[in-house]
Design a protein around this nucleic acid. Structure first.
Lengths: 123, 123
DNA sequence: CGATCAATTGAAGACTTCTTCAATTGTTCA
DNA sequence: TGAACAATTGAAGAAGTCTTCAATTGATCG
């Protein structure tokens, strides 16, 4: 409540802004995973993965449990899975959309982004 | 195409990870705005706002056009507006969800995040 | 033209975040 | 117990991001 909403949002997005963290969240979207599995799937160094897992844990977006000598991670709640799905949909849409846009732009003068109305060319 | 998808996603989220940029995108969600308006609405310094607008422009998520002595910004495409709406929905849901979760946790021993099954308490 | 306003740019320093290394904790099993 | 594995932590240096200041560009108007 003390933190403005747009700041909380920014922090949340920043927390998502790392390739390994994205991959982990997508993997956990399939279901709980042991660290060994995440390690194998991502191919990063153990300690580096641990650091990123710690970030996700601190953000409260994943939960961990020790089972014997191994540790299992899971998404902290169903909202998170929804979020990852939505993000995935939106992002892939958006990225393909941008690719199309890029193609369109290449056909014309090769400009950067200007508003549709204005037709100024870059020097 | 050269960039792995999860890396593109991470970059995209990182690009969103700043309070001023979030605010700007939400304002532009209402419709195109002149820089003066964004300046007034966000209350940040002109040059700081320009820097953040430049980030959004480079990412291709907003477009700008000069009209006389002023500059107008708008979201680069309809996808972007959809994205901001979805993000807003998801985020507010998620944040209130977390608030509830926090309340629940305060009622119990005040633990951090553990998997539901495990009930370890913090020292 | 010269003054002024709107907006952007470049660069420097403070501040975060990433990666990596070595050290540490917890668990298993011989 | 102690050797070995799983995972985490702490700390140091590299790399990136933010804010701010001064300088710059483009447009308007007297």
């Amino acid at each position: 409540m003390a933190v403005p909403l747009y700041q909380a949002k920014a922090e949340f997005f920043r927390m998502l802004g790392h390739p390994v963290r994205i991959r982990v969240l997508e993997l956990l979207g399939e279901g709980p995973k042991q660290v060994r599995e995440l390690l194998a799937a991502t191919g990063v160094e153990a300690s580096s993965l641990s650091q990123q897992l710690a970030v996700l844990r601190r953000a409260g977006i994943v939960a961990s449990a020790r089972e014997g000598s191994t540790v299992t991670y899971a998404l902290a709640g169903p909202d998170v899975a929804d979020l990852m799905l939505a993000a995935r949909r939106i992002l892939t849409e958006m990225l393909t959309g941008q690719a199309e846009l890029l193609d369109e732009l290449r056909e014309s003068t090769g400009g950067t982004n200007e508003l549709p109305e204005s037709s100024a060319a870059r020097s």
